[in-house]
Simulated assay, not measured.
Amino acid sequence: MSPSSSRPDPALLAATVGTGLMTGLYLAFDIGVMPALARRDDEAFVSAMRRFNDALDDSASFGALFLGVFVATGVAARRLRRAERSRAARRATAAAVLYGLSIAVTVGANLPLNRALRSAPVTASSAAAAAARTAYERPWRKANAVRTAACLGALALLGDTALRRAVSRA
């Protein structure tokens, strides 16, 4: 089905919903998980973050969502371009760029920090846990805030695009 048909475009819908889910996940860490863990001792912090990271690393659903959102956003932008909806295509392309930024931050910052935390020898002493936490917590939170902002911007663009499409069909 083409984006100019009377039905919602499934790629645009998938991109919008998926971006919303990723935004929510990152935001939950920003406003809930990390502030709660900040109140814990170093060993509890390191242990909890290792468990969170392992759960996400082991989740095929998370991996499919994480990469699928990027693909769906690109497909939506291409379909809009082909349908000669240039303004909508530009918004979807900008959303893909912002979501791509969140992927780049994840790959370039969050994942290396997660790997370093996983390999830190924290069971040996409290000093080791404190050092691992110090090396991890602030840089990870800053990188996560960038991911959250990028996804939120992408969500706003995709939501605007979907809403304008819906209104123009009404």
Score class of each variant (00 low, 15 high):
residue 1 M to T: 12
residue 3 P to D: 03
residue 4 S to V: 06
residue 5 S to R: 15
residue 8 P to C: 09
residue 11 A to N: 04
residue 15 A to H: 03
residue 16 T to S: 10
residue 18 G to R: 00
residue 18 G to A: 08
residue 21 L to K: 02
residue 22 M to R: 00
residue 22 M to F: 09
residue 24 G to C: 08
residue 26 Y to K: 03
residue 28 A to R: 07
residue 28 A to C: 12
residue 29 F to D: 00
residue 29 F to Q: 00
residue 29 F to A: 01
residue 31 I to S: 13
residue 31 I to V: 15
residue 33 V to I: 12
residue 35 P to H: 04
residue 40 R to D: 13
residue 43 E to C: 07
residue 45 F to S: 01
residue 45 F to L: 07
residue 47 S to A: 14
residue 49 M to K: 02
residue 51 R to G: 10
residue 52 F to R: 02
residue 53 N to T: 15
residue 55 A to P: 07
residue 56 L to Q: 13
residue 57 D to W: 12
residue 60 A to I: 13
residue 60 A to F: 14
residue 62 F to H: 02
residue 62 F to S: 01
residue 69 V to T: 06
residue 70 F to C: 03
residue 71 V to I: 12
residue 73 T to N: 02
residue 75 V to M: 08
residue 76 A to M: 05
residue 77 A to P: 06
residue 78 R to C: 09
residue 78 R to H: 11
residue 78 R to E: 09
residue 87 R to Y: 10
residue 89 A to E: 02
residue 91 R to A: 13
residue 92 A to W: 04
residue 96 A to K: 00
residue 98 L to S: 04
residue 98 L to D: 00
residue 100 G to E: 00
residue 102 S to G: 08
residue 102 S to C: 08
residue 104 A to K: 06
residue 105 V to L: 04
residue 110 N to W: 03
residue 110 N to H: 10
residue 113 L to Q: 10
residue 114 N to S: 15
residue 115 R to I: 10
residue 115 R to Y: 10
residue 115 R to Q: 13
residue 117 L to G: 01
residue 119 S to M: 07
residue 120 A to W: 07
residue 120 A to P: 05
residue 121 P to D: 15
residue 126 S to C: 13
residue 127 A to N: 06
residue 127 A to R: 10
residue 127 A to G: 10
residue 129 A to I: 05
residue 130 A to G: 07
residue 131 A to K: 05
residue 131 A to C: 07
residue 134 T to K: 08
residue 135 A to Q: 06
residue 135 A to I: 04
residue 135 A to G: 12
residue 136 Y to C: 08
residue 139 P to V: 08
residue 139 P to W: 09
residue 141 R to H: 14
residue 141 R to M: 15
residue 141 R to Y: 14
residue 142 K to V: 13
residue 144 N to L: 05
residue 145 A to V: 06
residue 145 A to R: 11
residue 146 V to W: 05
residue 146 V to G: 06
residue 146 V to H: 04
residue 147 R to E: 07
residue 147 R to W: 07
residue 148 T to F: 06
residue 148 T to S: 09
residue 150 A to K: 01
residue 152 L to S: 15
residue 152 L to I: 14
residue 153 G to Y: 01
residue 153 G to K: 00
residue 155 L to V: 04
residue 161 T to K: 07
residue 161 T to H: 11
residue 162 A to S: 11
residue 162 A to K: 00
residue 164 R to D: 15
residue 164 R to C: 11
residue 165 R to K: 06
residue 166 A to I: 05
residue 169 R to K: 13
